[in-house]
Design a protein around this nucleic acid. Structure first.
Lengths: 235, 235
DNA sequence: CGTGGGCTTGATAGTCCTCAAGTCGGGTGG
DNA sequence: CCACCCGACTTGAGGACTATCAAGCCCACG
């Protein structure tokens, strides 16, 4: 069947370049250019560019977004440590979205050539990359479904749960003290709402004792309720 | 650089398995199981299934969608002839979405093994598949952006333009007589609206002489205006 | 001829947006 | 150290957009 990219058959959403086989690792290493620190709120790359480099996030958060002509934007996904920036652009030749740092960020730059080399000589790595693209797409579709089907409360609950779970996937995270560096406007742009309405809805979530954001931290006080609002089956 | 999957460097959104090199073609042929006709409005495969087959649409339209617990659904993409069904599921092992036929449809079934074989021995084919996944993701992100940023009028205009352009990409299509087999409810579920409101908005588009749907056909009377409403730069 | 699905339309209500003003806190420059 | 400033957050009032619910219509189909 499929050559396995790692030990487990689970979705490779975030740990793209982790626990590689020796040959893959050395290829990645050979095509790593440099490390760089980027301050918060800086453009990492812009829609329309061609031949941009790949980056791998080492530390900090970023987000992908599209602009809509009218000056409004849609945040399409948030990028956490371990994730790759610019893979779709490398595959398709043009970037259709932009990426900005949310917090200050440390990235490893990779040569775009990595993608071609992987497909030519490291099928297992190529498969990992393809799976990462597919998994990212699943996340976007999930977000689309939430925005298309649910009201402001459900959307916020979903984003909270989603980010919390992604963080909890790679490290132990206290539900009462989850990192959450998003501004109101990020929430609004990600969820198809306005900042003002996000704020009002956040107040309701706090007042009913479900969850609250304070000081760039998320406190989930009633996880079952938040999960229910988010439309997730509690497990 | 990247081994080129075909003659042109353009996006491979739809013609995934067309104009292949000899070796790729023979692999695809060897793993083609059978052809089948499916009536309209039939489930082709369902979220949660594992080990489902791949299909390639020969004739007719289908759509991918997700259900939201509440009984409401979000249509995530429409699938036209030449496109592949089940590729993300083959890559990730589980289907997160369902697929239904919109019209009656003819599909070629492929063995899931095709994906693994492609990555192992036909890198150019694997790259085509990866690009197809990436291009599908771009379409979903575009839809997400439209739903997140625009009102009902803009959303409908976008979907009309989008489908018209996709059809026009593979064959000459009369803007005044484009195939358009969607029900009101499909439009609603794809655009995050209700059937009633879709209908009202469609009326306005017809009354101002922009575009009209009749008898499963779309007539674009004022293409510049429709494109502007859709947020596309007229070219 | 009955039936059902899709379409159409209206009245009403609710969600969410717009605009605007005011608060707060942190950072900068004097 | 303080005054200033700016961005982010907050809150309110009003209005626009869209949902909800319901009824009637039309046509294809059995």
């Amino acid at each position: 069947m499929l050559p396995s990219g790692g030990k487990r058959g689970t979705r490779h959403t975030q740990d793209v370049l982790r626990s590689l086989e020796a040959a893959e690792a050395s290829l990645v290493e050979a095509l790593t250019l440099r490390s760089a620190n980027v301050p918060a709120n800086r453009v990492l790359f812009d829609a329309g560019e061609i031949g941009t480099n790949l980056h791998c996030i080492v530390r900090g958060w970023a987000y992908r977004y599209r602009t809509d002509g009218n000056g409004s934007r849609q945040i399409v996904d948030f990028l956490l440590p371990g994730e790759i920036i610019g893979l779709p652009a490398a595959l398709l030749g043009v970037a259709e979205h932009s990426v900005r740092s949310l917090t200050s960020v440390r990235v490893n730059s990779l040569e775009t050539r990595l993608v071609g080399e992987a497909f030519r000589s490291e099928p297992a790595l190529a498969l990992r990359l393809a799976r990462y693209v597919a998994a990212s797409a699943e996340r976007v579709e999930e977000l689309l479904t939430v925005i298309g089907c649910r009201d402001a409360m459900g959307r916020l609950a979903f984003l909270m749960m989603s980010l919390h779970c992604r963080l909890a996937h790679q490290a132990r995270v206290d539900p009462l003290d989850t990192p959450f560096p998003l501004r109101r406007q990020h929430l609004a742009d990600a969820l198809g709402l306005t900042g003002a309405h996000v704020n009002r809805t956040l107040n309701r979530l706090r007042q009913e004792g479900t969850a609250a954001i304070e000081n760039d931290r998320l406190a989930i006080h009633d996880l079952p309720r938040l999960a229910a609002l988010a439309g997730l089956t509690v497990e």
